[in-house]
Computed example of a mutant assay.
Amino acid sequence: MKVLVTGAAGFIGAHCVLRLMRDGHSVVGLDNFNSYYDPQLKHDRVQWVREQAGDFQLATVDLADASAIEALFVRERPQVVIHLAAQAGVRYSLDNPRAYLDSNLDGFLNILESCRHHPVEHLIYASSSSVYGANQHTPYSVKDGVNHPLSLYAATKKANELMAHSYSHLFGIPCTGLRFFTVYGPWGRPDMSPIQFARAISEGTPLKLFNYGEHQRDFTYIDDIIESIARLIEQPPQVNPQWDREQPDPASSMAPWRLFNIGGQHPVELKTYLALLEKHLGQTAIVELLPLQPGDVLNTCAEASDLAQATGFQPRIELDEGLGRFIAWFRDYYPTAYRPRAVRG
């Protein structure tokens, strides 16, 4: 199939492009290479993908540029769209809210409009476990309500789910939303804790452990995320004939629309996570214990039985193994991460 992947130079996007190409799909990538973090890492990811699987088309386009998105759809006519581009980060949204409106709302509207006017067989888009917000009932189920987001980032992700539903209902676009849970692995974002913690431990500088390290995260290794996406591509959602307007299922619809959690389903305390990083690095962290940050949820844990039922797959790489793979990459890539160099797989 011809697949358009937005955010193709991002962490999940680059891994997704690599898998799709290995599976024989024709891939068109889109990324704006913005400066939320150093664009060199994004360029290095693209180079890594090309070294591993060959060249692919990559358009430097901003999601908020409606005419450029329209022109891309006219030119490429994708059959499937995997929409991973977004302004990420919970804490960044506290000080830079408009970046989230431009990318996550206006940008997603441009994707939906293009899917409307140039029909696709399946639109898969990234949501986030952050939509569960103040909900403290774990494991989080796609059947749960998500009406109390704790950050603007989370609010935009919930808005994406609602926007997708309206377009699915009005224009018949098959839409699958994926709520990712704390994705980690090689080529991850430098604003996320694996790289931040690994660098601090390696350099002997203090790292900040919020909520005194007592909250839990459901870490999900990148390969498990990509496997789930790969299996869902050719399974566009159908209308749920059992959907009841009186007792509506939040994860399906009378439209071709659905939601899935993708999570490791084995949450661990941040203290345990840090101890594993120390083990793989062979060094001890200098820790600054701090209260929970505004916008952060306390604990996360995915209930992902719907995903297993639909795909026959559920995340299976344990945190210890996944962090070992991550640290092997980290040692290879840093400290020369932000200087042009030959990139090894």
Rank of each mutant, 00 (worst) to 15 (best):
V3M: 01
V3A: 02
G7R: 04
G10I: 08
D23A: 15
D23W: 02
G24I: 09
V28S: 06
N32E: 07
Y37F: 15
P39H: 05
L41G: 12
H43L: 15
V49L: 00
R50C: 06
E51Y: 03
E51G: 15
Q52M: 10
V61M: 09
I69P: 01
E70H: 10
E70D: 14
F73D: 11
F73Q: 06
R77T: 14
Q79T: 12
Q79M: 08
I82Q: 01
G89S: 09
V90Y: 02
S93Y: 00
D95G: 15
D95M: 07
N96Y: 10
S103C: 13
N104D: 10
G107H: 04
L109V: 06
I111F: 03
E113L: 14
R116E: 15
H118G: 11
V120P: 04
E121A: 15
E121N: 07
H122A: 06
S127T: 10
S128D: 11
S129C: 12
Y132T: 09
Q136L: 11
H137S: 12
Y140A: 03
S141T: 10
D144V: 06
D144I: 04
G145P: 01
L150A: 09
S151Y: 06
Y153H: 13
A155F: 05
M163R: 02
A164S: 11
S168P: 03
S168V: 10
I173A: 00
C175T: 10
T176H: 01
L178M: 05
P186L: 11
G188P: 00
S193R: 02
R199L: 14
I201R: 02
G204T: 11
G204Q: 07
G204D: 08
L207Q: 02
L209G: 13
L209V: 12
G213C: 08
E214R: 12
E214I: 05
I222S: 05
D224T: 03
I225C: 15
E227H: 01
E227K: 03
A230C: 12
R231W: 03
L232K: 02
I233A: 02
P237K: 01
V239T: 13
N240V: 04
Q242S: 13
P250E: 14
A251Q: 13
S252L: 07
S253A: 02
A255P: 08
W257E: 01
R258K: 07
F260R: 04
I262C: 05
G263T: 08
G264E: 12
Q265M: 07
V268R: 08
L276R: 02
L277R: 00
K279D: 15
H280F: 00
Q283F: 04
A285M: 02
L292V: 09
L298M: 15
N299P: 09
N299A: 12
A302I: 05
E303Q: 10
Q309C: 12
A310I: 00
A310C: 04
G312P: 05
I317P: 01
I327N: 00
I327R: 00
A328E: 12
W329L: 11
F330N: 02
R331I: 11
R331S: 14
D332H: 09
R339K: 03
R341G: 14
A342E: 14
G345A: 11
G345Q: 08
G345W: 07
